[in-house]
Design a protein around this nucleic acid. Structure first.
Lengths: 183, 183
DNA sequence: TCCAAAATGGAGTGTATACTCAAAAAGCCG
DNA sequence: CGGCTTTTTGAGTATACACTCCATTTTGGA
């Protein structure tokens, strides 16, 4: 545990390096040596702070998963547009985390605790989207709203995925069209 | 290259083993040892047939990417429903390949020739979907059809991705709803 | 049946990886 | 400063990996 300032600084540097490497080249690029080199730190220092490489990666992944959700405290007042805009901003402004968000989810099979975390988070997101839809249209049945939310979130994830493969793809435009069709 | 029957059988066994392992545990699980053990073959035999492990994996990935396209020869007569049904069948019937299809696309950063292949293939698929849309509605402008096709394919990929994480998800139902909204 | 080509077994190579450890250095507080 | 704790260093370990080599066996056509 970091209790001196030096330790806290080192932890930060390591997490930054890990995040950059994950964004640039995925899990394969985030080797211990690469992380330590970029953070300007030796292996021993790494293991003084993190019990394993995986723990550092998990922490970055956790941050990425949480960053996709805007203002969790006002979960029950936001509109569908708010949520979609937040997703667009997340993908375009925090593209590093967005990329990790998608990568971690797919390659999670090897380490299924990440996949489970991702899924739990997704379910909560679907509920939030569905609630926003029902607030806009009170006559919408509960099940219908959930189904629509699943479709919309699927579309957003799929389009983000498309954008990760080809940065010239206009993610925002397509995301808004998807929202218009499903909302 | 294999010219004796024995060699061809071995090649087949290796490709099957590779596909199974990729489907079960992703790229990480498809080690040379795992592939050879499952295929009942030694490393020397593997390298008598494939120049590298990557080549074997690439071949499986190529098959997966191609398998998502139904009847390429009648590319200009199919309806949107045909295409969506084919995708649904691909995901549910050939779940191994579907999973590889998605995995390869995301982790392609390490080996970007796969990612490029995936993207080229995606562009062709968008055109095919857009053409089907325009055949159904002649008044639909070209650009609009392409945009809608991108959104629909994004949704299908995103929903397939969702299904890979949680097999109890009703992919077919949500895929059809997405198609209805975008078509 | 014979033989060259093809396929196989399996030990062996080099390398990259995650991780450890004990000693040295630096940080904090009286 | 002085004494205690935390942090850093960097060489070192064990292991898993892709891949090689070649003697041996099998194959299939002449």
């Amino acid at each position: 545990m970091a209790r001196y300032q030096a330790g806290i600084r080192t932890e930060t540097k390591i997490l930054e390096a890990t995040r950059e490497l994950l964004a640039e080249g995925g899990l394969d690029a985030a080797t211990l040596k690469a992380i330590c080199d970029r953070a300007g730190v030796q292996a021993g220092s790494f293991y003084n702070i993190f019990p394993s490489k995986e723990q550092a990666i998990m922490q970055v992944a956790r941050d990425a998963i949480q960053a996709v959700d805007p203002n969790p405290e006002r979960s029950y007042t936001d509109t569908l547009d708010d949520l979609v805009d937040a997703y667009i901003r997340f993908v375009t402004d925090q593209s590093d985390l967005a990329r990790i968000y998608l990568q971690v989810a797919v390659s999670g099979s090897a380490d299924d605790s990440v996949a489970r975390r991702f899924l739990r988070h997704h379910v909560r997101r679907v509920e939030r989207f569905a609630a926003a839809m029902r607030r806009a249209d009170r006559s919408l049945p509960d099940g219908e709203a959930t189904t629509r939310a699943e479709v919309l979130l699927g579309a957003l994830d799929g389009l983000a995925f498309r954008w990760v493969l080809d940065r010239s793809f206009d993610f925002a435009k397509h995301a808004r069209i998807a929202a218009a069709h499903c909302g």
